[in-house]
Every structure is written in C-alpha cells, then in structure tokens.
Design a protein around this nucleic acid. Structure first.
Lengths: 192, 192
DNA sequence: TAGCAATTTCAGAAATGGCTGAAAAGTCGG
DNA sequence: CCGACTTTTCAGCCATTTCTGAAATTGCTA
C-alpha cells in the first residue's frame, strides 16, 4: 500500500468499519481513498495505492456504482474511467441513507405487513403478531420522518440538527404563539 | 427449526438482515425469537426452536448480553437462565443506537481527531485533511444531535418524529418571529 | 475489421467467519 | 465436597466470502 501515512491510517480504518457493516474491506478502502483524493482516480491508480488486484478493484468499483456512491468521469484523449465521490458530503449522506433504506428498511416493512395480514391460529402467534405490529409501527414512524426530512435543503437540515432537542422549545413557543389572537408579521401564525 | 410458520419467516428474515449488519445469522435469529416470544426462554428452548447447537446458542446469548440487548431472568427452583428482550420497543431502539454509537461512531471520531492533529507535509495530505475535517464535523453534528435527542422521553421523541416536514414550517415561523422586536407572551421570543 | 487499451468475468485459491461436539468450568443442594 | 445440572470454552471442521490471475469481452481508432 503506497500512501501517505495519514491517508493510509484513514483508509485502513474505513476498511475495517466497512466490514462491520455489510461492506467488504476492499470496497471500504476504495471509497475512503476516493473520498480524500484531490482528483479523480482510475482503476490502475487505485490498484497501486491499495496494493490489491486489478480485478478486485474492478468488482469494488462496480459495487460502489451500484450503490450510487461514486461518479464516473472521463478525460479528453484518455479512455480510462476516472472515479470520484461527490464533492458535497451531504450528498454522500443522502445517498447512503437512501440506499440503505431501499435495501434494508423497505423489504423489512413489506415482510412485516405480509406477516400482519396472516391469520394467527395459536395464542403464541397472536402474541408474535402484536410484537411485529409494534416493530412495524416503529419502522413506519421512522420511514415517515425520513421521507419528510430528506426533502429539506441542507441548510435547513443542519439548522434542525444543530437545534437538537431545542426544537421542543420552538414547538412550545409555537403552541403559545398560535394561541394568540389576531395576526403576526402580516401572515397567519397558523401552520397551514 | 420447530416454529409456527409466521414466526419462522420473521426469524429467518431477521437472521438475514443481521448478516447485512455485522451481526451473525444465529445471533439475529436468537434475537428475533426472543423478541416475539410471549415468555422468557432458556438456552435449550432456543436450541430446539432454532435447530442449532447448544454451544452456538451460548455464544450468541453472550454476544447479545455484551450488546445489552437481552435481559436475564431466573425462576424459583430452576437454575437455568431465561432470556427476554425489553418489553418496551423504544428501550430496544435506544440501546441499539447507543451501542452502535459507542462501537462505531466514537472510535471513528477519535481517529479523525488524531489525524487532524497531524502535520500535513504534502499538498495531497493537506487536501485529505480538509476532507477529513468535513467528515469530522459531520459526525460531530450527528453526535451532538443524538446526545440531545436521546434525553427526550419517548412521548416527546415520538412527537418530534411525527411532526416530520412540519418542522420546516415551524423553523420558518421561528425565523420570522424571533426577528420581531420586543417581547411576546411575557417571555423573550429568543430560544434561551 | 485488425489491433490495442481498458474493463469485466469467472473458476479456483486463500482467508475469514461460523458452527459443532467434547471437554472444562462453574454452581447449587444435600 | 459429591453429584447433578448448567453454562462456557475451544480446537477443528465446514461454509461463505473475498481475492486473484487468466481469459473473455467491450469499445475505440486507424
């Protein structure tokens, strides 16, 4: 592995973290490398930096493309594919969450719904369904929240995250204010 | 595997989903089984329901205990350990998030901080650090949000999640209102 | 369409992770 | 402190995943 120590440490760590998720080590390393690279890299450059086989890199890049996590670029007069991660780290987060939801949450929700439709014969099954219902409702709640929040532009999203639980205070304030008679600031203070 | 079809389907699915995360299949299955069980189960009951070896169950339960995901109970006149998941599904969510943060986010933040302290020799390293800084700040933002939100009681948490996109409107309103001169409703309209 | 450059595929090797049975260790009542 | 019961440990086997080199494919240009 031919990398500045700082980059190498990061790449190795990211590879390990990748393993803890469903992602294999090489894929994690490729992504980490692209993330910190100052310019797009082609497959051979990745090979020499990571010291893995050409075919391994090819498969890794294919997987990252399937996840929409890398972008493909070309240079004039050069046939090779060059890869980058999005400049905007928030775009990366959005893609990551979106893809994980698609692959993990949605199928689970589908399954839970199917199981909840089934006729429960025994008491044991009836209890299991009650539990699955709890899980289903939980997932729906998160999915609904996510569907809403993903539409926020990044600035507002950051604003929201920075506020944290202080949002509660805003909500309390809203409760107080919307109970005021009349109008404020020329528009109705009600929330539609 | 000796289980009602409904339960079996869920257990198998959960086992597969477990694999996609760092969790091994058996551990996922044990957890799913305990989650839908109407009463605490001992190791041998898990063995006969899942059809895996006693030692495998023992290891799985140990791992779940390390994750604080199961609780241990005893019955009078019975030496065996009986296991359950918490009744309250929100407690499960909280534990899961807490443990994943501890194992994944915190070490990553530590590493990022270390790497950001280092002296960057080359231009390449300087650029890498700028990228790592972005990632660090992102993680810090999430960690801060989480530290804040985890303290909410479940009712308020659900309220927050249910609110969804309306949060944006509340924030817009806050923008307008906090720009108003003077006081409203007897308290400052500013947020602490 | 021949020839070259780049990428992908794939069968098998290598590595890793998971599972088991047998044995050890722990725990309790008598 | 014995004997029965329960849980844990672990060496080795098994299954799955990852990785590689070689061959096939794709796609471009002359």
């Amino acid at each position: 592995m031919q990398l500045p120590p700082l980059v190498q440490t990061f790449v190795l760590h990211f590879g390990e973290m990748g393993s803890r998720w469903g992602i294999n080590r090489t894929v994690g390393q490729i992504y980490a490398l692209l993330f910190v690279a100052e310019r797009p890299l082609n497959a051979d450059e990745i090979v020499e930096r990571l010291g893995v086989s050409r075919s391994n890199v090819s498969m890794g890049l294919k997987e990252l493309q399937a996840w929409n996590l890398v972008r493909l670029q070309h240079r004039p007069g050069d046939r090779r594919d060059y890869f980058t991660t999005p400049e905007d780290i928030w775009q990366i987060v959005r893609t990551l969450v979106e893809e994980r939801k698609k692959r993990e949450v949605d199928p689970t929700l589908t399954l839970l719904r199917e199981l909840l439709m089934q006729e429960a014969g025994t008491e044991e099954e009836r209890h299991a369904q009650a539990r699955l219902r709890e899980m289903h409702d939980l997932f729906e709640l998160f999915a609904g929240w996510y569907a809403d929040v993903r539409r926020l532009d990044t600035e507002r999203l950051v604003q929201l995250l920075t506020l944290g639980s202080k949002v509660q205070k805003v909500l309390e304030m809203k409760d107080r204010l919307t109970r005021l008679p009349g109008r404020i600031g020329g528009r109705s203070a009600k929330l539609d």
